[in-house]
Design a protein around this nucleic acid. Sequence first.
DNA 1: TCCGTTTGGAACAATGATGTTTCAAACGGA
DNA 2: TCCGTTTGAAACATCATTGTTCCAAACGGA
Lengths: 186, 186
Amino acid sequence: MRGSSGTLVEIATQTLLANPAAALAEVAAAAGVSRTTLHRLYPTRQELLVAVASEAVDRVERAYAEVGLEAPGEEAEGALRRLLAALIPLGPQLEFIHRERSLDAELSLHTRFDSLDDLVIDLVKRGQRAGVLRADLAAWWIVSSLNGAVYAAWESIELGRLAPNDAPGMVLSTLLDGIRSAAGGG
Amino acid sequence: MRGSSGTLVEIATQTLLANPAAALAEVAAAAGVSRTTLHRLYPTRQELLVAVASEAVDRVERAYAEVGLEAPGEEAEGALRRLLAALIPLGPQLEFIHRERSLDAELSLHTRFDSLDDLVIDLVKRGQRAGVLRADLAAWWIVSSLNGAVYAAWESIELGRLAPNDAPGMVLSTLLDGIRSAAGGG
DNA sequence: TCCGTTTGGAACAATGATGTTTCAAACGGA
DNA sequence: TCCGTTTGAAACATCATTGTTCCAAACGGA
């Protein structure tokens, strides 16, 4: 009865994302491994949680890397669209890290997220200098808004209200142009 | 050694918002009450959590009521601004309810939030009919975006990056007009 | 003052998961 | 086949918290 597929951490991720209160026995069973072995690899529940979270951040980092924000000549809109498309599907991972209280104390996780935010902040600043993005809003706030929008989009998908394929475009449009009618009486 | 002030639930709220993992003994101590008495009023930790969460939703509902979204002649922008100003300070309450996993199963809480969302959805739809808000975005999505923006703003305040007084205007501006430069080359 | 009610203190049982240890069995390469 | 290594099963100690119970004491109105 091996776990369906993947490494132990991956299966632990699946199990813990589905039920964050799962006992270690359940995680071990799901992974097709004895509790003893699980304990040998991750002596402590907290260590397992951190491993799961780290793997999640790995995925987020990979998503950023694949989007390739660094290219200095990059136009902001396309980069943002690709970033949204890459991040929204990672909603479960983001939600897990965000909600799991015992991870709050894990400074390294926050540091890594901050570094990723910095990448986007740079992108935004370039967009601002190029006159494409509003310069009257702080770059960090734009990034916060973007992250919040990603989260909102994921939640909508989870609730079955939003089609995954529609999400990136909708978020981008909302974020870039706002909700005010262009025609109407502003 | 009475608790500094307020009802038991209010003090429990303070204690649990500060440290959601606090043992009941700590909550009782903070409230200047014996664990026995606490148990008499809330036989179960879960019941206490629900009571705290309910009180939090009460506050949110009161905030909505004071904003007065129902007025049919109301212009959308003013109502949204007042709503943001009322909701953002409730960030701790919203965060508590959102992150506390044992509250996920509490259907009544979700129902109440849904009712509040419905109020805003109606407001948005009126705004759309009036030509003030974009009609190409679903009203529920606009409301989700708004809620996400509230959360992002609160987080920024908590991190010390955003002045509470600046928050409503900044959020409203971002939400209504987006992050794209009006001048720039669209 | 008297008495019913509410509270506090303390000790207790139950719980349920975690982390530990031990030994036998399975595995895998040489 | 042999041997070192990895694994599993089971039993155990620990532990913090929760929820329960009981009695004495404080409280408060009549």
